[in-house]
């Protein structure tokens, strides 16, 4: 009878080890994703280094579902750059092009006006009531590069959250078997 109890114990300990190593693996994946994201924030100087294009206002340059890489940097903002900015009272940031820049002689502050390439009018209608110019603190970053189509995954996932849970579940299953 002794050998039966021994083997049962050994099987139990293996199962415990397996679950532990699964948990550690999963934790590793999550933390490394977090490290990469935070590292990108440090390197690019932008609070959100990767954004997905949600509107058609920059067609045909950027289409819905394209991914943009942002970089803030210390360089002054100039006309022609594509920037991502927040407007007070709107929660979704906007990706548009700078068409006018006025930079103050004394303080170095910039006053900029933006417009979507595909929009007929400039963005004053999108700004907060009475706001005529954007300033540096509205700007989250400037677009430096892009990848087409990759962002569709996020658009689909925010559209129907069920798919998000299915994908998370599938990831859990994949990481658990080894």
């Amino acid at each position: 009878m002794e050998w039966i109890r021994e083997s049962v114990d050994s099987i139990k300990s293996i199962q415990l080890r397996q679950t532990l190593s699964q948990a550690v693996n999963l934790g590793l994946i999550l933390t490394s994703a977090l490290i990469i994201w935070k590292g990108l924030i440090c390197i690019t100087g932008s609070e959100s280094p990767v954004v997905v294009v949600l509107s058609e206002s920059m067609e045909p340059g950027f289409q819905r579902g394209d991914i943009l890489f942002l970089h803030m940097g210390k360089d002054p903002l100039r006309a022609g750059e594509i920037i991502v900015f927040n407007v007070d009272g709107r929660d979704i940031p906007i990706v548009h092009r700078v068409i006018k820049v006025h930079e103050r002689q004394d303080t170095g502050e910039v006053y900029i006006l933006t417009k979507g390439d595909n929009n007929p009018e400039d963005d004053r209608v999108l700004y907060a009531q009475g706001q005529r110019w954007l300033q540096r603190h509205h700007v989250m970053g400037r677009a430096v590069g892009f990848l087409p189509y990759v962002g569709w995954m996020t658009i689909i996932m925010t559209g129907n959250p069920i798919i998000k849970y299915i994908i998370i579940g599938a990831l859990l299953v994949i990481t658990s078997k080894d």
Partner: peptide, 25 residues
């Protein structure tokens, strides 16, 4: 994919060290 071009008037004033105004794109 495409080239976006614009023509900007650029000048300096006593108030602003740089003014860039897009005139045509």
């Amino acid at each position: 994919k495409q080239v976006f071009i614009f023509l900007a008037a650029e000048y300096e004033t006593p108030k602003n060290s740089l003014n860039q105004i897009s005139l045509w794109d």
